[in-house]
């Protein structure tokens, strides 16, 4: 029993690492008002650059740097095109995602099934000797430990710092932000890039330890879309987005276990289970917004329980998300 528990907990923690980086990066970008739909392709491309760079130089550090650079460049392109040239965020992001994926497969041909360097575990002294918790929580590598700290760090950033406040204000109402002396486009661009860098780390986490190596498929395909859904699921709150990532990772691990335990149920059932849940949460977001708009106070008492649940699960998106700011 203990072994299973350790397996589950450590699997959830390790498995959630890349999606956590990607989803929190996307949260940053969306809080500033830009939807970066290129997430999925960007993850794959940065996974490749991490692997390729570290394979060529045998340096993990350079691998991670290359991935971060890739993420930054992709999002820089998206940011400049959407913010300064007013290209549609959705259209460009989508196309960019497909483009990055193909680019990754094309350049990745040379690295198929090669043995590269891998990030090794770094058990934390003393803590890793604790029963159950030690092997499941404190025996991961440094990137995973960083993913623990990331939600806290980003929460402090968005709630306690001046830059965080400016990020929220340009996502809420760039015109008002402009009136208060901010430069909405520059602030948005910075946060899109920061989001891209975090996504890059997520991609590197795939190719440098979680699904080490390069192949076609690499194994991280689709994660970006999940991360996008998780941002909505977590209603743009760092901790809830992180919680969503852990739940998603848990569902994936359970899928694997259930597959062993209930071998007569088709494996696909457990593999796709997380997706309908995501759809359900999106529908809920829509209905809460709609109800609170149309029948203020009138029907709320009647469906109190519904509203309380819905309110817990959903908070409205940044008011100016996805819209173009035209000064």
């Amino acid at each position: 029993m203990n072994d299973t528990l350790i397996l589950i907990v450590s699997g959830v923690i390790a498995g959630s690492c890349p999606v956590l980086f990607a989803a929190l990066g996307e949260t940053l970008s969306e809080k500033a008002g830009v939807i970066n739909l290129s997430l999925d392709g960007c993850l794959l491309l940065s996974a490749l650059s991490a692997f390729a760079a570290s394979y060529q130089t045998s340096s993990l550090m350079i691998g991670f740097l290359a991935a971060m650079m890739t993420g930054a460049l992709v999002s820089l392109f998206l940011g400049i095109m959407t913010l300064y040239f007013r290209v549609s965020q959705v259209a460009l992001g989508f196309v960019l995602s497909l483009f990055c994926r193909d680019l990754a497969y094309f350049f990745g041909n040379a690295y198929n099934r090669l043995q590269g360097v891998e990030v090794g575990p770094l058990p934390i002294p003393f803590l890793s000797d604790l029963p159950v918790i030690g092997p499941s929580v404190f025996s991961h590598n440094i990137v995973v430990y960083l993913s623990f700290l990331l939600p806290c760090a980003l929460w402090i950033y968005s709630d306690k710092t001046k830059a965080g406040l400016s990020m929220k204000s340009v996502g809420e109402n760039p015109y008002a932000a402009y009136a208060r002396g901010y430069n909405p486009r520059l602030i948005r661009l910075c946060h899109v890039i920061a989001g891209g860098i975090l996504t890059g780390i997520g991609g590197a986490a795939f190719s440098l330890f979680l699904k080490a190596g390069w192949g076609r498929p690499q194994g991280c395909e689709g994660t970006g879309w999940i991360a996008l859904a998780l941002v909505i699921f977590g209603s743009w709150n760092m901790f809830r987005v992180a919680l969503g990532c852990y739940i998603f990772s848990f569902l994936q691990i359970m899928g694997l276990l259930f597959q062993q335990w209930f071998s007569d149920v088709p494996a696909q059932v457990f593999q796709v289970a997380p997706f309908p849940l995501m759809i359900f949460s999106l529908v809920l977001v829509y209905f809460t917004n709609r109800f609170s708009e149309t029948s203020v106070g009138r029907n709320q008492r009647k469906y109190r329980l519904f509203f309380l649940t819905a309110r817990f699960l959903s908070k409205p998106a940044p008011s100016h998300l996805g819209k173009t700011f035209e000064p």
């Binding site: 830059a163 204000s169 809420e172 109402n173 932000a177 009136a179 002396g181 908070k315 940044p318 008011s319």
Partner: peptide, 20 residues
């Protein structure tokens, strides 16, 4: 900013240090 708190609305755009 419709979805930021009243206090944060007041804070946005004020001169301050790195931490608010």
């Amino acid at each position: 900013f419709p979805q930021m708190t009243v206090l944060d609305n007041l804070m946005a755009g004020r001169p301050s240090g790195f931490f608010i």
